[in-house]
Design a protein around this nucleic acid. Structure first.
Length: 494
RNA sequence: GGGCCCGUAGCUCAGUGGUAGAGCAGUGGACUUUUAAUCCAUCGGUCCUCGGUUCGAAUCCGAGCGGGCCUACCA
């Protein structure tokens, strides 16, 4: 009866009755006698039909019951497995007593059924069941068959229900898997090797973000969850690998939003003897490859925006794009207070202690980035906030760095890697000094990394891409929580 | 952190001051080609929580919890 507890009690009673049947109905058998998936069964029938076989092939399928239509001494049951749906036809005159076990069947149960296929009057390919059994009893009712499940919170907290009820959820999960596969294809085709580096680290470096802290009991010391992959991958360049990439989960102890999950998958790659211009060509090739592999097209629809990846991607510079959208030439304003004032004049709130770089970043984030819908490279960032990048030879105030934007957000970040151990140490010290003065998101000196650099690292171009954002790009989903199967949620309270 | 919106049956939703409802699912019955099966009957509620206003609160007010969107933060 209809409270949740009563529904569950009914099903528990059916489970118990199932256990007591001696006609071969264990409620949870370990072994299933399946010969075909739903899709394979259909294919087998159609092949046999095409050959003009007189007798349809015998098949055994297994899956979850998603609908049942009971008509006295006959019944139709819809079964769904990973390959699709197939209809079962059960009749009392064929099945005898085992037909009566339908009394113990509920929507959501898993069933195994063997028999031969035929076409119904309406033409639907259907399995005429000769034997069947319940192979996993469900104790709770499935979401409603017609409207499915729409409550956002339930969809995220109980993603399995979302996947059962909503084809779109299944499609996004498959596309995410396809993105990862396409990324690996591209890198393997370009002679990169895939590596794995530590998640638990003594220093969380390679990015400016607040890390999660954890504790190692045997060593009795705190460790950090990584915030990027960078510093370990560069050690591998020192070690002699010319092309490496990693698809790794990183963790940033920051806010949760439509575009930020505390843990996310980062793609980073490093190529020795390349610079950031080479990386720009590669990232364009990579993203096009992924889009084509996953969607079959370079034209992506995103709400009211149509993205055209086939057109040559726009290229600009940090100085130019900022001037274009704000009228500010930052090279004319070396003073942090002056920049903060200019930002406020344009309605961009900045903290009164914001550094020069932070104020510039606020301007970019508020007035420039949201306008960059089509894929756009921004080259040559101020060296000030690019401590791991090489400076440009012809202008040491600039870093040999670009970021790639699309749909108003950062998709990729790349630079010619700093490989001068002396300069790198100085840059890290500068950052440490900033942290001492209150900025808690800076690059700390990592002596173990600097030691590696002193053994010599080849010139290299490095790249980082937020995989979720790439998945959002190719699926058209505006929220990161739709492309992460189990997004971070608050503890359920109330 | 700020603003707006949402929370009613297992699911999808109505109900906006006067006896808590519908469809699906469930239960009982009819039905041997249905496919959102159909028909008859029926069970089912902490109306998110706590407090307040009122003769009377799902409804109005306040606080809290959870969620969504926007915003802020975020290499």
């Amino acid at each position: 009866m209809p409270t949740e507890d009563e529904l569950r009690a009914q099903r528990l009673a059916k489970r118990a009755r199932l256990m007591q049947l001696d006609a071969g109905f264990p409620a949870y058998p370990a072994r299933v006698e399946r010969t075909h998936t739903a899709a394979a069964a259909v294919a087998a029938f159609e092949a046999s039909e095409a050959q003009g076989d007189a007798v349809a092939p015998a098949v055994a399928v297994a899956g979850r019951v998603t609908a049942q239509r009971l008509m006295g001494r006959a019944a139709f049951v819809d079964l769904r497995d990973g390959s699709g749906r197939i209809q079962l036809s059960l009749r009392r005159d064929n099945l005898g007593e085992s037909f009566d076990a339908l009394d113990l069947l509920d929507l959501g149960d898993f069933v195994e059924a063997g028999g031969t296929l035929f076409r119904t009057r309406t033409g639907e390919l259907t399995l005429a069941v000769e034997r069947w059994r319940i192979i996993a009893k469900a104790l709770r009712p499935l979401p409603e068959k017609w409207h499915g499940i729409t409550d956002t919170e339930t969809r995220y907290r109980q993603r399995y229900l979302d996947l059962i009820a909503n084809e779109r959820a299944r499609e996004i999960a498959r596309k995410r898997a396809a993105v990862l596969a396409a990324i690996r294809d591209w890198y393997h085709a370009h002679d990169y090797i895939e590596v794995e580096t530590p998640v638990l680290q003594e220093h969380a470096g390679g990015a400016a973000a607040r890390p999660f802290v954890t504790h190692h009991h045997a060593l009795d010391r705190d460790l950090y969850l990584r915030i990027s992959l960078e510093l370990h991958l560069k050690r591998l360049l020192v070690g002699g690998f010319d092309r490496v990439f990693e698809l790794g989960r990183v963790f940033r102890n920051e806010g949760i939003s439509r575009r930020h999950n505390p843990e996310f998958t980062l793609l980073e790659s490093y190529e020795a003897y390349a610079d950031y211009e080479d990386v720009a060509r590669n990232v364009e090739s990579l993203v096009k490859h992924v889009a084509l592999a996953v969607t079959g097209s370079l034209q992506l629809v995103h709400g009211e925006h149509a993205l055209d990846l086939a057109q040559p991607w726009a290229r600009t510079t940090y100085r130019e794009v900022l001037r274009e959208h704000t009228g500010i030439d930052y090279t004319q304003h070396a003073d942090a207070a002056r920049l903060r004032a200019l930002a406020r004049e344009r309605g961009v709130p900045v903290d009164e202690h914001a550094s020069w770089g932070t104020a510039l970043d606020a301007l970019m984030s508020a007035l420039v980035e949201p306008k960059l819908i089509q894929p756009t490279f921004i080259f040559d960032y101020p060296a000030e906030f690019s401590p791991l990048a090489k400076r440009k030879a012809d202008d040491p105030a600039l870093a040999a760095r670009f970021e790639l934007f699309a749909l108003g957000y950062e998709l990729a970040n790349a630079y010619s890697e700093q490989n001068d151990p002396v300069e790198q140490r100085e840059r890290m010290r500068d950052q440490a000094a900033k942290q001492a003065s209150g900025d808690d998101e800076t690059e700390l000196a990592d002596e173990d990394f600097l030691l590696a650099l002193e053994y010599g690292m080849p010139p290299a171009g490095g790249l980082g891409i937020g995989v979720e954002r790439l998945v959002m790009l190719v699926t058209g989903e505006p929220s990161i929580r739709e492309v992460v199967l189990f997004p971070a949620m608050r503890e359920r309270g109330g």
